[in-house]
Amino acid sequence: MKPILDVKNLTKDFGGLRAIDSLDIKIFRGEIVALIGPNGAGKTTFFNCITGIYKPTNGEVAITHPKRDTEIINDLVPNVVVNPLFRFLPESVLKSLKKYFPQLLFRSLKPNEITERGMARTFQNIRLFKNMTVLENVMIGRHCRTNAGIPGAVIRGPGTRKEEKEVIEECYRLLKKTGLDHLSDELAKNLPYGDQRRLEIARALATEPFLLLLDEPAAGMNPQETKDLVDLIYKIRDEDQISILLIEHDMKLVMELSERIYVVDYGKGIATGTPEEIRDNPVVIKAYLGEDIEDA
């Protein structure tokens, strides 16, 4: 079976600082995988690289949609989308020229195009649309799956009305699933913290992803909310066949939830395995607790 997310040799430099150092990560269909590491290890940078917000210094990111072929979505040599200026060229010409002018003819995917291909994320510091209602927040997630334009909006014909109705129904279903349906008309900024986190998940789900990237979903949640979150994540995986990659500091949650764990430190992958293997791995313990002074 092909991995749905295949990250090879990913490296990202910020000036002289190497935030990610040749990281390899594979995720298969239906898995819940955790990415852990001490603060500043490069976990969020990794998310930003695979969702197209950053451009990697080296390496490549490829995804395989369950119903489509493998596609390289982000790497050093842009090779996914033809630059709009050269769209008129026939494909054979483009292919033969690709060797010589990759940077000129091609560009990598923008974050919105990556979301469109089925990878959705939440943010570590919640980034909801604060002055929009809860329902509207989720409806934004449907944007890339609908296509009413300005004429449709103004005339509001049967097609647009039907699409709009389907969007509302689908979003309402997602709100029910995340347990936010009773708050649908509330402004997002008025929601309690835990609900805001869940709203971010609902919004990401609205984009119909096959892989959901959660950046510290349990941060700032109380034990009861964390428990609900675990149930929600299982529900998402089991009902919708969505794979999940999460960054988390709450070890109890990570150990309980994930089937495989990747550990990064200073941008390097230092260990990978099941929760049990990671728990007893001396390298991981050293990364978290520091070196023994007597050895030094």
Binding site: F129, K130, N131, I140, H143
Partner: peptide, 16 residues
């Protein structure tokens, strides 16, 4: 409106 509220989140949610 989403663009007004948060450009990065807006793009991450699939809006061009």
């Amino acid at each position: 409106m989403a663009l007004r509220e948060d450009e990065i989140a807006c793009q991450a949610m699939g809006i061009d």
